[in-house]
Nucleic acid binder design. Sequence first.
RNA 1: GCGGAAGUAGCUCAAUUGGUAGAGCGAUAGCCUUCCAAGCUAUAGGUUGCGGGUUCGAGACCCGUCUUCCGCUCCA
Length: 488
Amino acid sequence: MKTNDELFKNVISHAKEYGFVFPSSEIYDGLSAVYDYGQLGAELKNNIKTYWWKAMVQLNENIVGIDSAIFMHPKIWKASGHVDGFNDPMIDNKDSKKRYRADQLIEDKIARYEKDGKTDKAAKLQADLDAALNSDDLGRLKSIIEEHEIACPVSGTKNWTEVRQFNLMFSTQMGAMADGSEEVYLRPETAQGIFVNFLNVQKTGRMKIPFGIAQIGKAFRNEVIARQFIMRMREFEQMEMQFFVRPGTELEWYNQWKETRLKWHLALKPNPSKYRYHDHVKLAHYANAAVDIEYEFPFGFKEVEGIHSRTDFDLSQHQTFSGKKLQYFDPEINQNYVPYVIETSIGLDRMFLTILCNAYEEEDLSTDEKQDSRSVLHLHPALAPIKAAVFPLTKKDGLPEKAREVMDLLKIDYNIIYEEKDAIGKRYRRQDAIGTPICITVDHQSLQDDTVTIRHRDSMEQERVAIKDLEKLLDGIVGWKPLLQSLL
RNA sequence: GCGGAAGUAGCUCAAUUGGUAGAGCGAUAGCCUUCCAAGCUAUAGGUUGCGGGUUCGAGACCCGUCUUCCGCUCCA
């Protein structure tokens, strides 16, 4: 029996060994919490994106997709709350190993002074705190904590580290000259690119509420702790959709998207018991309802996708900060309003990891006579990096030539691999390990009657089919149609 | 960032108290021509994460550093 820890380690080494995910800059010792997608990983990732894009944009006539820039006007992050909300002064207690926000520790002390009737002291401390925060004086925060003898609530000691600033956002300089250039951020989420284009899309696309704008793109967060393989990376990719609705109807839509999104996950035929909703008790400043879709990874249930009812917070903020009216005239009720927003936001890398964990199996095929096992990725056929492999049974007697013909017939529509090295069984097992759903074998009979054997990955069963029927057969198994139809 | 564990070939791991870095799998080329891995032959692949130190001699001991994993916080 494998422990979950071992299982996860095996998934990670499998991902590396077969070209799905490599540590970034590996020959230079790697770069913390950054990973590269390899030749098969890139295919799988693209397929996940395609699945999402088709499910969102293609299947919903009131959703359109955009691709906004990673660089955006710095004021956007003021408006969104990222500049102020994610620049926290942090301090650690060396004895309890607990981390606190320095300003919150001081706030707690102020509250205690007030409770004890020392209102003068409380007011003085509050003023000191405000002054230190406004001037970004971290040293002053530390000295305040020392002066007022603030102790760790857990260990009770005053053994503190220095106060450090943790910035969520990466910043860089825009403009070639070092001086006079402007500091810009790498976006920490793709959503704001949608909000600031709300009017552009609504007007040019003649969109009527309710409607959605979808986007897939990279985002960057300077995580304090980035862990668990590609679960939390500093550079990651999001697939987000913001759905604009009439105020008052948002909870209806919230519930509908909650269902729709889980259905999207379950259409890939994972083990359904590994999925669950997790309602947010503590809501972010912009939300009036929020739920996570969680997957049970080997290291526990973790968030893969979030569905948030974001109210009119973002559009209202941008209206204020930009001075531009971000409203919609609703002819049905003859009113102007700032639309409310339901957001569905899924981490592409997390989805990738979900799929990998779910697909990976070390299958025991032992019989009484012989011990046997195989590593297999039970990927949904539509997501598999390689759709089919074509093998000549042997590399003689004109079989390779015939196999090449079959390959040429199929490679226009699908990603196909050709192999003639090693015994046929070995070639089957190699394809199992990378999740190829179908292997097509050309044998001596093929030369006479134009039929081949099809071997299925999951059941390992074989059937004989005519070469002329292969295209249709692949369409039915590895094509997008069956998967997308199951969403309707 | 703090604490704990670890880092040897593509992968999994050996290497006696400090004494010449090895195996299996995998890969490549060939043999065999076979419908489910582990048949035969040959070949390639390592400044033992990196940098110092102790020693006649370091994969092993000491210091530093980087990376990964496990805990503490937040998130997609």
